[in-house]
Write a protein that binds this DNA or RNA. Structure first.
Lengths: 302, 302
DNA sequence: ATTTACCATAGGTTGGGGCGATATATACAT
DNA sequence: ATGTATATATCGCCCCAACCTATGGTAAAT
């Protein structure tokens, strides 16, 4: 093949070391080999790459113009070599990961992605923020390798799960909402006002799954949900981490519910399908998420 | 060399055609060659790339994971081949181009860049918007290949220039400026008000090059210049194309000067250094800019 | 059952890439 | 001026990857 990798390698080594001999030393070959490779490369290209009139060869303008493209070929070839090593090492080429935005803060997952990039530079990562239901479906359909969700009571046979932390929910409303003025909020109080819930556009609506009230509004976006709360459109059960900034600036308040503690925990699970072997990336993610979630748990509550 | 280009080529051809034989036909080789290449590639990689249990080979998951990286190697290799063709064809690898923003509208140059990309996909283009003086310096220092500037009286020996069009200047001020209320504006009227000029941060200020007035404000940016005009901070001589939108919305008006026509033309030159041969890109740019400028000239004036 | 199209393997040729040895040019110190 | 160190070019030789042709085996289609 014209323009062989050996030729290109010799070319770049010569450019970088400044001489054929030095290039030969770097590549562990004889000087005559480099000389021959460069000669053949020049024949293939059709013009000379180095000016040999003085002792040390000087790159010609044409050679310079070629350099970046040659480097790019060698770079992608090295990349291929690394990919093969990865595969032999059972490092996946792509990984996808869904998380329930009620189960774990975005920041934690983004931090994880940053670490992942350092650890597995060749593996492409798909990070999906989703509702609980959507995340579960993605695992079920084998569209993602791993998901972080609020715990369910049970999982199908071929699922594996690992509890990693608790997320603390609380019942909240906008600061100006009538419920915010009560000293004690009972279930029947809640039933008198509109209930706000996170749902999903894809999974259809289940409007009557609450016995507290029949007046429920749904939103699929946590941010519009927060805005609805601030505007006093209703009350909601939300994880602490999602409402914390708004609690701190006072636009949203926790309701002192009488039927349950002011904050009540839900378990958070890591879930995945058991079929198919886990590669290095998946193992790493499993451990790393577990660690990060544990650290999260030890953070003092509000 | 392990992972030779022939092997990679055979691999991709097989993936794309679906069989070793078809790949051999596409590449103009014998079927046994492909078979051998793939076998060696599999040995080098350390795992099998195709499942041969049925009649037509089926890409393994590992093979699939490699495919993109292999394609990328071949793509950059093809790119290198094209670059060599370009060099043999004296198509430059990079071209830089400066233009005086008073001489020609940005839009024309951006349109040119878009055409350039189509014509010379491998050539990188540097398009510099500059003042007259800066553009001239860039040519002088050989930092750019070509510049579009307002014509000078004469150029040094080793410069080439080509007049391409005229740009029509006019004297303007903000709609609420006192000068805007006069029926006829004489030089002594102008002298009573602040003069606004485009200059350059790099070339130093020449404050006393005007005999009309000693009160001159400078700006290096056409947009702040326009804003200063709108705010009524002074009058300026500007090319029509730069002020046209503001004339149309009425925020800036032309002054009916008594000492010169309301619009007065300046020649626009394309300039470059004569030393060094011109490649295809430069020739193309020369012709294309000339054409576009001519079309610009035939546009009806305001 | 036959044909077709596919893959694997064997055997032989060619040429690129590898080596060492040698000749020669250039820079630099003495 | 001369020697030393370091360059590159070239020759002869070897090896092996890449290539071919030819052949046999096998899965799918007719």
């Amino acid at each position: 093949m014209e323009l062989s990798l050996e030729q290109l390698q010799a070319f770049i080594a010569t450019v970088e070391t400044g001489s054929f001999s030095a290039a030969a030393r770097r590549l562990g070959k004889a000087q005559s080999s480099i000389s021959g490779l460069i000669n053949n490369l020049e024949i293939d290209a059709g013009f000379s790459l180095f000016d040999r009139s003085s002792k040390i060869p000087k790159l010609t303008p044409e050679g310079l113009a070629l350099m970046n493209d040659v480097k790019s070929v060698l770079k992608s070839h090295r990349n291929l070599r690394h990919r093969i090593d990865n595969i032999m090492d059972s490092v996946e080429s792509e990984i996808s990961l869904a998380y329930d935005n009620m189960a774990i803060p975005d920041g934690v997952m983004l931090g994880l992605a940053a670490e992942f990039e350092q650890e597995f530079p060749l593996t492409s990562l798909m990070l999906l923020e989703a509702t609980h239901k959507r995340a579960y479906q993605l695992i079920e359909a084998n569209k993602v390798n791993l998901a972080v969700v609020i715990s369910q009571d049970d999982y199908p046979e071929h699922f594996a799960f690992r509890g990693i932390c608790h997320v603390h929910y609380c019942t909240v409303a906008g600061a100006k909402h009538p419920l915010a003025k009560l000293d004690k909020v009972a279930p029947q109080d809640l039933a008198q006002y509109r209930h706000l819930r996170i749902t999903d556009t894809q999974t259809g609506f289940r409007r009557f799954d609450s016995d507290l009230t029949s007046n429920i509004w749904y939103s699929n976006s946590p941010t519009t949900m927060m805005e609805m709360l601030r505007q006093g459109l209703g009350w909601a059960e939300m994880p602490l981490h999602a409402v914390e900034p708004h609690l701190l600036n006072g636009s949203i308040v926790r309701l002192p519910t009488s039927h349950q503690a002011v904050t009540f925990p839900h378990c958070v699970d890591l879930i995945w399908q058991t079929e198919g072997a886990m590669g290095k990336c998946l193992q790493w993610l499993l451990e790393r998420i577990t660690q990060k979630a544990k650290a999260l748990n030890q953070r003092p509550g509000l």
